[in-house]
Design a protein around this nucleic acid. Structure first.
Length: 576
DNA sequence: GCCGTTTTCGGCCCGACTGTTTTCAGTCG
């Protein structure tokens, strides 16, 4: 899809315009870029179907940007973009990543020192050529040098699953401070985005200084970027930034609303406040000089006439409109989950016995667990063959009898994660599949197929009456691997036709992604949230699958493992 | 450059912190 290429160009145009001090236009280009980035349809297809008018229907795209999209689709280039690049021939997106370096300084660096790239910048900084430039100084030079060094060691964005436990430890420490009245995670971490840039904390306190002192002295703090009365920013040895904001109690709710974002959501809510003659900032909602709300987020939304919006929805993706008319979804919660159906045991590549996995599930308050070990094609995971699967089936039946005799209301379901072979057939014989409680099918090998072949492969698998669930349906791994070439609309259609469930995989894959979950929900396709645990502790990942589902607007009814075991089994093909 | 249930022109979210140009521009979120 050309969407991402175009988004990148428009972001770059916005950056270039900022170097020239142009007002407002950069914002317009950024908005168009963001909108293209999130667009579910292929922009080239929109143009083919509806022409330029179709392009102008895209949020933030008007006459001019539509023309530029057209130009790009026809010629592969945008003349205006080239001109800007010629005027300032620097790798602008690269340089913008240096903390403390913005468009204006980048322009000066090019004009005075000919700096075009990070490499050029590093050389110049080391020769101390920056400190004498107009607008620069010794401190700025030192900061840029550090910014460069940190860029090298920084991870960029970290996966939600990795950063959340780290952030929660810091939060706990903050909460334990006697000066701290309330504390919360904020930013993209609170919105549960699948990757996190920096970790944001909000604290209510009458003694900000004490909290700041504590924060900058935390173990792992490598550099303090900035420190003021209410706001402090630090860089951690782990390769990421942490920001802390301290506000008085009466502003805690509005500050939390502001600091949680997203930026787009904030702009939209502030506009709504303005339309009502109010002003919304992190200090509260104000009518003239009077603060009329601010202590809680609930109050903030209420006084500007909105239904409370869960953090996972705050992306300006339609939640504002839904909130205004009171039609927000009742999002699924972690407590709604009654079992995990994608768990591996030590019968194949998993770490723990079936008993240990089952015990872990019981401790979580689940009513069932599904053991779905790999099948024989996956040699690296010691996948099971037909004979081993039947042995495992007997073994699990025995365990279930034991539970029954102990009056335990818990059941182990027996499944398999079987491989979808290149031609769409399943690597385990149908008569064996039919004896299991359910069958998960997934693509692991031969992933580089063209869309048409890949969809034919998946279609055949979905049409198999023994296949109940497609695991990690698009094959993506966050930050590591793009999805396979698939046609998701067709996949949804097939899911509906065949009654096949799509998995939301809570591991590093985060597959389905949020936008796909929302589309699946809209098409009435049922989903299941699983962890793909190969270790008992990985069953804890369930919360991330749930937050991903929430970001996809999913409700309890959309997710089949919110049901009791009887209801769950009815969701499968051969069990009604 | 985009947008509009007061608007097709005149707006475009709001504030903190830093360093340096010593009164404010640049950067960040």
């Amino acid at each position: 899809m050309k969407n991402q290429e175009l988004a990148k160009i428009f972001y770059e145009i916005a950056n270039f315009l900022q170097t020239e001090g142009v007002a407002f236009k950069p914002f317009a280009y950024q908005r168009a870029a963001k909108s293209l980035e999130d667009l579910k349809e292929d922009v080239a297809q929109i143009y083919i179907n509806k022409g330029k008018n179709g392009l102008e229907e895209i949020e933030g795209v008007g006459k001019n940007i539509a023309l530029q999209i057209e130009e790009y689709l026809k010629t592969g280039k945008i003349a205006g973009h080239q001109e800007l690049k010629n005027k300032l021939p620097v790798k602008i997106d690269e340089l913008m990543r240096v903390e403390g370096l913005g468009p204006k300084k980048i322009k000066v660096l090019y004009e005075k020192l000919g700096i075009k790239s990070l490499k050029d910048l590093e050389k110049a900084v080391k020769k101390h050529e920056l400190k004498d430039l107009f607008g620069f100084g010794e401190t700025t030079e030192k900061n840029i040098l550090q910014g460069l060094e940190f860029l090298k060691t920084s991870h960029g964005r970290s996966p939600l699953q990795v950063i959340t436990p780290v952030a929660r430890k810091v939060l706990k420490k903050l909460e334990n401070l006697k000066e701290v009245k309330m504390a919360s995670l904020a930013g993209s971490l609170r919105r549960k985005k699948e990757t996190i840039g920096d970790v944001d904390f909000l604290v209510a306190s009458d003694n900000p200084k004490a909290v700041m002192d504590f924060f900058v002295a935390l173990p792992g703090v490598k550099k303090v970027w900035g420190r003021g009365d209410t706001k402090t920013s630090v860089y951690m040895t782990g390769g990421f930034d942490m920001d802390l904001r301290v506000v008085p109690e009466k502003s805690y709710g509005s500050a939390l609303q502001y600091f949680t974002g997203s930026k787009e959501h904030n702009i939209a809510t502030r506009k709504i406040a303005m339309e009502k003659g109010l002003k919304l900032s992190e200090y509260g909602v104000f009518e003239g000089e009077n603060q009329i709300a601010g202590a809680t987020e609930q109050d903030v939304y209420k006084v500007i006439g909105m239904q409370y919006i869960e953090p996972e929805l705050r992306e300006d993706q339609g939640e504002i409109q839904s909130s205004l008319v009171g039609s927000l979804p009742a999002l699924i919660n972690l407590e709604d989950i009654k079992g995990d159906l994608h768990c591996h045991s030590n019968w194949n590549g998993g770490e723990h016995s079936i008993e240990v996995m089952a015990k872990t599930a019981m401790e979580k308050g689940y009513q069932y667990i599904g053991i779905s070990d790999h099948s024989k094609t996956l040699k690296i995971e010691n996948g099971l063959n037909e004979k081993q699967l039947l042995e495992q089936n007997k073994y699990i039946k025995n365990l279930n009898s034991k539970f029954k005799s102990q009056n335990l209301k818990f059941r182990i379901l027996h499944g398999v994660e079987a491989d979808i072979l290149k031609d769409g057939s399943i690597d385990i014989k149908n008569e064996v599949l039919a004896q299991l409680d359910y069958v998960i099918a997934s693509v692991h090998l031969n992933t580089k197929m063209e869309t048409k072949e890949m969809m034919a492969r998946i279609e055949k698998a979905m049409k198999n009456s023994n296949v109940d669930i497609i695991a990690h349906p698009t094959g993506r791994i966050v930050g590591r691997r793009e999805e396979y070439k698939i046609d998701f609309d067709q996949m949804l259609k097939l899911a509906n036709q065949t009654g096949t469930i799509l998995e939301i995989n809570s591991s590093a894959r985060m597959d389905l992604r949020d936008l796909y979950i929302r589309r699946a929900k809209n098409e009435g396709v049922k989903m299941i949230i699983n962890t793909d645990a190969h270790h008992k502790d990985q069953m804890d990942l369930m919360e991330y699958g749930v937050s991903q589902a929430r970001r996809g607007w999913a409700e309890k009814e959309d997710i089949i493992n919110t049901q009791s075991v009887e209801g769950l089994l009815k969701s499968f093909k051969n069990n009604d």
